[in-house]
Design a protein around this nucleic acid. Structure first.
Lengths: 341, 341
DNA sequence: CTGTTAGCGCGTTCAT
DNA sequence: ATGAACGCGCTAACAG
């Protein structure tokens, strides 16, 4: 019960292997009648291409990779990620590509994985997420010449094209929302400053909220989110609104505020960057920035496939902007109490 | 700047390709001196095996697949999944295997993906999760003869070996904890009855909590968790404790109870199946069943690789039990109020 | 024992 | 529409 090969089809249809190959790939060089006969034979035998053989001669893997350098704990907690992967996957499978996933320790391990994947011809390109300052990955990718797209760029070194979201503009919208409600003393609980997008957001926050606005940096965890919140709430004058860089920290901050005897949104307004079930399950429900992670992933994957199939000059060039996140106003933001602070 | 091949190494070392192959794979047939020379040459050229070529002659893909039939929304919200994948990945990469991930609509689509992967020789085996009643996958896998392991078995049809957790015993432990606190009217908010593990848990709950215990089935979402909770709390006599089949529903139930004017754990005790940051961020914090999803994934992957490399008779046979989940008691469970109900 | 030659695996492609 | 060679690594058979 060996799997049928091109040779089997050729034998059954009484033609050469070359004819079979042409027929199966729908190219000229075979008469309609022969083509039908060949296709019928292939169908009868239940033939499927052998990926390894095809990859060997095509010198292409038919797969793209995603190596992620984040602790499993963090990954698990953030719905964003699975949605992103799901979107990537949807785009890839539609075009017949497979997704190789690797979860690693840090960006250096990630760069090694990229090297290995490329050397072994396991993938035709990779997607990058979570760019850090001084990130070694773009340079490695440029060096080995592997197609890559950064989901969440742009890459400041310009080595890797990105599909990116204008975090700065989104942050400005958040600050304007809070200003519009009458808040004057804002604070920002950000992710690690080594993350490019964290840095961008912090910068945009500073620009929009004024120089005396308060900030605190964290590692994105609920624990540090709570600690940062307690620190900010001890300040005098106390901030009346805090923007958190993810949903998990926003929820943790909510708890911390409540433990400090403050009510939300009475004494403190809270905004979460990244929406999720979490934001809808708390009391009060959280005002949050939503973006469609699924479509974002799909867009990044599409861009990568363009690069893989048409080369650097084939499709779009440079960075592609993705739609702006939308602010969903819920219960956690309200005008500050006149006597607040 | 072509990638170096075996032929390049052979030329550089002044030997035949066969000698190079033997040397690189550490097998007899080459003298120590020649071997060193060959390895040095390979190293100097920076040679790496071409996966496609190796797969072609080895008739093995060097990869295993995981196709998941769950809505992206659900996947994202449950930390369990990323942890599981992370554990799978850790085990695979240690043994040089890659992970192919596919997120699909339903189990039928999943079965098609399995068929295609196997026909195209993209993978050497697959991992299965979320077995349903009447699930088509085990039968398909048996039919095509692809190695597979069920993470969360056992498979009642016996077609696929499983690495499983004794949900029944865990459920019994939960019920005993609640009985020990003095609760007599228990309720269970389960997942979809078509999920094998949901059915097992519900059955075990019925056996441990007695025939008049209340149950409600959901789709695992926060929305249905809330609805189910409201329904259960309208019963007279009212349950004094509810066990939820996941963390998301437990949190949603907490909110629903509070909206119904009940306090937790004063009027109602709550237990979540599956622990996560969610359980630690709520007020009160939730008593939960913890299991090490990372190690669970690693165990399932290890079992699959055994099967792939040594065949059905090679390693362990049949189902393998994984450690029992542990009950972490937090603030959401307490003795019922004497005047409760 | 050391090393070579030849040919396989499977689909694609170039002369003819 | 065909025969033959190619891509790359592995290995059975064989010679020194």
């Amino acid at each position: 019960m060996r799997r049928p090969t091109i040779a089997d089809i050729a034998r059954r249809a009484g033609v050469s292997q070359a004819a079979v190959s042409f027929a199966l790939n729908g190219r000229p060089g075979v008469s309609a009648a022969t083509r039908d006969r060949i296709l019928a034979a292939a169908d009868a035998l239940g033939w499927q291409p052998n990926t390894a053989a095809r990859s060997l001669s095509a010198a292409a893997a038919g797969a793209v990779g995603l190596a992620v350098a984040r602790p499993a704990r963090t990954l698990g907690v953030e719905p964003f990620f699975m949605q992103l992967i799901s979107g990537i996957q949807a785009e890839l499978s539609e075009r017949g590509y497979a997704l190789l996933l690797d979860l690693v320790e840090d960006v250096h391990a990630e760069a090694s994985v990229h090297r290995r994947w490329w050397a072994e011809r396991r993938v035709d390109g990779v997607l990058l997420v979570d760019l850090r300052t001084g990130d070694p990955r773009p340079e490695v990718l440029r060096e080995i010449g592997m197609p890559a797209v950064l989901a969440g760029g742009p890459d400041p070194t310009g080595a890797v094209p990105g599909v990116w979201v204008d975090d700065a503009r989104a942050m400005t919208a958040v600050v304007e929302h809070l200003h519009g409600l009458g808040h004057e003393r804002l604070a920002h609980v950000s992710g690690p400053p080594v993350m490019e997008h964290s840095a961008h957001r912090a910068e945009a926050f500073g620009a929009a909220a004024g120089p005396e606005a308060a900030r605190a940096a964290t590692d994105f965890s609920d624990a540090e989110g709570a600690v940062a919140t307690r620190g900010l709430l001890r300040r005098r004058p106390r901030p009346t609104a805090i923007v958190y860089d993810n949903d998990v920290m926003a929820v943790a901050g909510l708890s911390a505020a409540r433990q400090a005897g403050l009510s939300v949104p009475g004494d403190l307004s809270v905004v979460a960057w990244e929406d999720s079930a979490l934001c809808r399950l708390t009391h009060p429900t959280l005002t949050a920035l939503t973006r469609d992670a699924f479509r974002f992933g799909a867009a990044a994957a599409a861009r990568l496939l363009d690069l893989v199939r048409h080369g650097p000059g084939g499709g779009a060039v440079g960075d592609t902007e993705f739609e702006l996140p939308e602010l969903v106003v819920r219960e956690s933001t309200a005008p500050p109490r006149p006597n607040g602070g």
